[in-house]
């Protein structure tokens, strides 16, 4: 790890000021500190924001819930309001990482956690995300865990978060503050596809600080978060899935489907949702939706299974949720 200036901020404004354009915010540290040790991240200034008063979980006027950016993953998952009203989020959080990591990792940190692509971590490998223009060793290398949707010739990495997949399905909103003031961004627009600039992963501008995430008022969803991985626990997703379904009188009134482990961002399967809404909630519709979810998949050498896996997961989860309606 390179030497860096360690700074502590007393409040949000001071944090933004201390960070300046090049500084990094340190919250739980579970991802940033690891990347700093690998010297993938090399900040000269690190602003410790872990003591800022941003860890509350509070009701929003109008029925939503605000998650402080520094609320720990474990605390969000254990929060009674989250468990009762947004179980898909609780389940996603609980399927991520390990209990120890969830005790440190924060909502804000989870939003900006970086890919687990092994070539990104390996300083001797070519990686456009780490070093723009260097090339991508994952393309011709081990890409079993890489993207099938929305990738570019420059980058086939996937976003590793479980939480963000659930937030995408919930249509949550990310609240930011920064040198240019405060603003809010829908979570579905927060993460970017790699395109020609895979090193630009979110809409965050230099110095921006995530302050909270807003969950919209709940609907009468039936929802679930499912995750397939290489062992029973404590592993990143091969494919994960957040589904919210509202079926009334045999028809799908509303549906949200977000996939994890398949793209550079949590992947909302809008075309699959369109197949469902207004149609009969039957297996034929679910088949169509499942096929639509992966219709655009462009597999690499080793990950064609992900499209089939995602299709089956979408279908099965819809069938199960419809059964609960």
């Amino acid at each position: 790890m390179r030497e860096f200036a360690y700074l502590r901020a007393a409040d949000v404004a001071e944090a933004v000021e201390l960070a300046g354009p090049q500084g990094k915010y340190l919250a739980g540290g579970t991802n940033l500190f690891d990347l700093m040790r690998e010297e993938v991240e090399r900040p000269e200034r690190v602003v410790d924001i872990s003591r800022l008063p941003l860890s509350a979980i509070e009701p929003l006027p109008g029925g939503g819930l605000r998650l402080g950016a520094l609320a720990r993953n474990a605390h969000v998952a254990a929060d009674d309001r989250v468990r009762r009203r947004y179980p898909v989020l609780a389940r996603a959080l609980l399927k991520g990482a390990s209990p120890q990591l969830r005790n440190r990792a924060t909502v804000g940190g989870n939003l900006v956690q970086r890919t687990r692509c092994r070539y990104f971590y390996d300083l001797t490998a070519a990686c456009n995300k780490r070093e723009p223009g260097a090339g991508c060793d994952a393309l011709g290398g081990f890409n079993r865990t890489h993207a099938i949707l929305g990738a570019s010739p420059n980058c086939v990495a996937v976003h590793p978060s479980d939480m963000c997949v659930a937030l995408a399905a919930l249509d949550a909103t990310v609240n930011l503050t920064g040198p240019d003031g405060e603003r809010s961004v829908p979570v579905t627009g927060f993460h970017l596809l790699p395109g020609g600039t895979p090193h630009v992963e979110t809409v965050l501008r230099n110095g921006d600080l995530i302050t909270s995430v807003d969950l919209p008022p709940e609907r009468p969803w039936h929802g679930d978060y499912v995750k397939v991985r290489d062992r029973a626990s404590y592993a990143f997703a091969l494919v994960s899935l957040a589904v919210l379904l509202d079926v009334r009188h045999g028809r799908t009134v509303a549906a949200r489907i977000a996939l994890g482990g398949v793209a550079h961002k949590p992947w909302r399967a809008y075309s699959a949702e369109e197949q469902l809404v207004g149609a009969a909630a039957d297996e034929a519709a679910f088949d169509r939706a499942a096929a639509a979810a992966v219709a655009e998949a462009r597999p690499l050498d080793h990950n064609a299974f992900k499209a089939e896996l995602a299709r089956r997961l979408v279908r099965r989860t819809l069938v199960e949720l419809a059964g609960q309606s």
């Binding site: 687990r116 092994r118 390996d122 001797t124 490998a125 290398g141 081990f142 062992r231 626990s233």
Partner: peptide, 22 residues
């Protein structure tokens, strides 16, 4: 990785061994 001869999953997050849950 056959191209470089480098082990790419050199860590316990990528080389999976059984957990309690397995």
């Amino acid at each position: 990785d056959e191209r470089s001869g480098r082990i790419v999953n050199a860590g316990l997050a990528d080389y999976h061994i059984p957990t309690h849950a397995d």
